[in-house]
Design a protein around this nucleic acid. Structure first.
Lengths: 251, 251
DNA sequence: ACCGGATTTTCTTTCGAAAATCGGTGTCTT
DNA sequence: AAGACACCGATTTTCGAAAGAAAATCCGGT
């Protein structure tokens, strides 16, 4: 995509005032990206209120673009709002997680099936390519001991998302892609502590990567049922791991 | 739900100024409801731009609540926006319609399956009840000759939505319900001219009602496969009718 | 001490106007 | 005459402050 070479004014302002990077089209879009990212990576905890003043201070924006962003996020179930009491980060719960995971199993399963039926060379290349990229950052992130680095974690999440998207990218259905993305986003909130774990259970992480490889290989080999079944199992296992972690953290 | 006995101020204002009915929580919510309704029933044609000034005049609101509503509707794919050129009603196309219908077939199919497995007496009662209500207004609306009355059309649409929602209401999945609603909304935009037709093809409409009855009966009798297959066929047939009408209207 | 009810405080929500942007139009240069 | 550039009008986008609610606090009466 073109760089969208936007506005000289904002560039000037950024130089003059702060070195933030409002490289998007509108401030509203910028606010949307920032808040969304901060929610997904847990900077704003689930259930915590999103005070306008606090957001204004944090991002250096005015009410209007913030409100704009919050309303869009509300329709995506990342924030919820009550009458005249403002916005808060949508809560999470084990039941909600399972709902999201099972629904995603349905959508991604069908999406993968269709991709396998309709995907061309480019699709195969994309699946294998995104898996390769994922595995590389996976090794780098968990290969070394100690806590995972923030940059690695971001990249890991980005490539994990890209991989899963590629699996269903040839399905031909925009709605499925959209829903899948939304559900992925939702489960990402639960998965985050998993990725940030102390790499204690590297074994499990290893099998996680192996699963992803198998899915990719079945997919490009057009083994529909195997790929779909394996994807479903993988998603389900993720749910179980999360449930365990949550139980350990809260119980 | 409680009446949400809101604000004396707005009531005062309504008395003093105009007899509009802002009976919702916030003006933003009111704007959302109004615009959404106007889009769904075709007052704003697909693809047409939504100028803020025009909306302001039409609803007597200020920019902020309108913008709020438009942003939410954007996340629901009812309106789309370009950089700094404002909002417009999301376009429709035959391909998009089929995508929406097929995706809904997937979601509603699984939702119905689960409802049949898990639904209790209340669910059965709801399915039969909403169908009965639908059939009544159906007869009233199409029984008489001439064009359908606006009130009847609204009620028909409301009850049709309630019927379809009841089918999957016992699925236990909020995400499926949410997605189904969103897709239903989408297809409603295509279906509208169908319902407003001159009742020329009453025969087809009759079979449409019969299909719905059969689905309800199979559902409460817990005949899973039959109910799901029939629902899928019904959705598909709707698509074909719409495609035909669109071809006739535009081709 | 303790419970209603008014008041202050802290938010959100809404407004109206200012700032910025886009598309088009006319003019000037090559 | 063709292309580029700068202005103009119409719209969107953003701002800061006023207006409106909910929560918190404070006060007199029992």
């Amino acid at each position: 995509m073109p760089p969208t070479q936007p506005d000289a004014t904002r560039a000037r302002k950024a130089q003059a005032a702060e070195i933030e990077r409002p490289a998007e089209g509108t401030l509203g879009q910028h606010a949307y990206d920032c808040i969304r990212s901060d929610i997904l990576r847990g900077h704003f905890a689930p259930g915590s209120p999103l005070r306008l003043q606090a957001l204004k201070d944090r991002y250096g924006l005015s009410f209007s673009p913030l409100r704009e962003a919050l309303n869009r996020l509300q329709s995506e179930q990342l924030v919820s709002s009550v009458a005249a009491r403002g916005f808060r980060v949508t809560d999470i719960s084990v039941a909600e997680m399972w709902d999201a995971i099972e629904t995603r199993t349905l959508i991604d399963g069908e999406g993968l099936r269709r991709s396998i039926q309709r995907g061309d060379d480019d699709w195969e290349a994309q699946v294998l390519g995104t898996f390769h990229a994922l595995s590389r950052v996976f090794e780098r992130a968990f290969g070394q001991s100690g806590p995972i680095k923030d940059d690695d974690r971001d990249l890991l999440e980005t490539r994990h998302a890209a991989y899963h998207r590629s699996l269903i990218s040839a399905s031909g259905s925009d709605w499925m892609l959209r829903f899948s993305t939304q559900l992925y986003q939702q489960t990402q909130r639960y998965r985050w502590p998993f990725f940030s774990g102390e790499s204690g259970d590297a074994l499990l992480k290893q099998s996680y990567l192996a699963e992803h490889r198998e899915i990719a290989e079945h997919a490009v080999a057009r083994r529909e049922d195997e790929a779909v079944a394996l994807l479903a199992r993988s998603l389900h296992r993720t749910g179980e791991v999360i449930e365990e972690l949550h139980g350990a953290a809260k119980g």
